[in-house]
Structure formats: C-alpha cells, structure tokens
Amino acid sequence: MIRKITLYLASAVLLLGTASCGADDSIEQAAAQSVEQFEAMGMPGMKNDALFVAEATSANMLHMQLGELALEKAVSPEVKEMAQDMSTGHTRVLEDLQQIAIEREFVVPNQLGRAHQKVYDDVSSETGIGFDLAYIKRTREEHDRLLKRYEDMAENAQVMEVKQFASKQLPLLRQHLQQTEALEDRLGDI
C-alpha cells in the first residue's frame, strides 16, 4: 500500500515537472521521463512502450476535447451524435490507460502534445458546416493513425499490460474509423 502511494506521488511530481518544462512537446517529455525511470530501475528497451503510452494519452485527450467542442459547435445532428460516441469511448480508453500508467509507472502528459494541439486548434478555428467537415476529416485521419499504432503495439509492446491494452482497444478504434469514414462519405458532397 505504501509503495502504491509512493508511486502515485512520484508520478504526480513527474507530471507536474512535465507541465512546467515549457515549449517542448509534452509527449516527448513524458516518454523521456518514463525511459529515464525504467533505465534507473534496470529496465532498458522501454522507449517504444513509453512513447506509445504518452502518445495514446494525448490522443485520447484530443478526442475527448474535440468531442466536447463538436457537441457545442457542430451543425449536423449526425456529427453531434458521433462526437458524443467519440468522447464517451475515448474517456473510457483514457481511464484504462491511466490505470496502466499508474500501475506500471509510466509518466503521461497532462496536456495535449504539440501535434494534437495543432489538430485541436485547426478544427476549433472552423465554424458552421466547415467545422463539421473539419471535425470529421481530422477525426478520421487521427483514428487511421491510432489504429496503425495500436495494431503495432498489440504485437510489439514490451510490457504485457500495454500489449493487452492496445489489443483490447482495436475493435473500438476500428468502429470509430468506420463511423467517421461513413459520415465523411455522407457529408462529403456538401
């Protein structure tokens, strides 16, 4: 019990350190801190797992934030419905990922990575039907990238919990990708 509390506090300190580092990318910072920790514990070769956990954390935060934004700004009821599904699904995924991060001592970002922040900024700058189309397009692109990354980690992760997590999320990511592709096809003619 004391070990878990100590680990939790150490993770919190590292997260605060990540937030205060400034202009560097939060994903890269979190991954570097995780790798440093693992190497200090005599666990080399954890860079890919650490980077994935940090990327996945930021990506899930992105989809939650974009979903909330779309619930406010979207014109199309179909886009609002999809945004609600995305936000709910990615909230559950993030909760699962955060649990693994705590248990396995990964450092995670508490803000969007630079690339994810750019996606959010690009989509949020749009209005009306332009917002709906930008939201769908960027959500599809991001899910396509996520699916490939999760498939890779389901095969190649070093940490069994990370491998299982990635594998478990594949059906949801495939569903989200199909949902965005279908909606993009329907609204793409506008």
Rank of each mutant, 00 (worst) to 15 (best):
Q65G: 05
E103L: 13
V108M: 07
E161T: 14
P44A: 11
E36V: 10
Q65M: 12
E72W: 04
Q111R: 10
A31G: 11
T18S: 15
E155V: 10
M46F: 02
L16T: 07
Q98Y: 09
C21Y: 14
D24L: 15
A56Y: 07
A23M: 13
E95N: 07
L133T: 07
F52G: 02
A134L: 02
Q99V: 08
S87K: 09
I27K: 07
R174Y: 13
S34A: 02
I100D: 10
P77I: 11
Q84N: 02
G128P: 04
M64F: 03
K4D: 13
S34D: 00
Y135K: 05
M82F: 14
S20H: 04
A50P: 09
A56F: 08
V119Y: 09
A166E: 07
P44Q: 10
Q65F: 05
N110I: 03
K163F: 05
L69R: 01
I5C: 03
G113I: 09
S76K: 03
Q98V: 11
L187T: 10
D152L: 06
F131D: 01
V13F: 09
E126T: 01
R138A: 15
L183P: 11
T6F: 08
T139L: 05
Q29A: 11
P109C: 11
L170W: 07
I136Q: 00
Q117H: 01
L66V: 00
A59C: 03
E181C: 00
E142S: 15
V75K: 07
Q29P: 06
Q111K: 12
E155K: 08
A101K: 04
L146C: 06
I129N: 05
S76Q: 11
I136N: 00
L173M: 06
V107F: 01
E161H: 12
R149G: 04
D144T: 12
Q29T: 14
A83P: 02
G128K: 00
M82C: 08
S26R: 03
A12N: 03
E151R: 13
M82S: 09
L112F: 08
T139R: 05
A19M: 15
S20I: 10
F131K: 00
A10P: 01
K168I: 02
A19P: 11
L170V: 14
E55T: 15
S125E: 04
L51G: 14
V75M: 09
H176W: 03
A31S: 14
E126S: 13
L146W: 02
G42Q: 01
K4H: 11
L71K: 07
H176F: 12
K47Y: 10
G128D: 04
V119K: 09
A74C: 05
G89R: 02
I129D: 05
N156K: 14
L14D: 13
D85S: 15
A115L: 09
T88P: 03
M64P: 03
Q169W: 04
I5Y: 09
E28D: 14
E184Y: 13
M153N: 02
L177F: 03
F106G: 01
Q84K: 10
P109R: 04
L94T: 09
L51P: 12
V159T: 15
G188V: 00
I2S: 12
A10H: 03
K137S: 15
A40H: 10
M86E: 15
D122F: 06
E161Q: 13
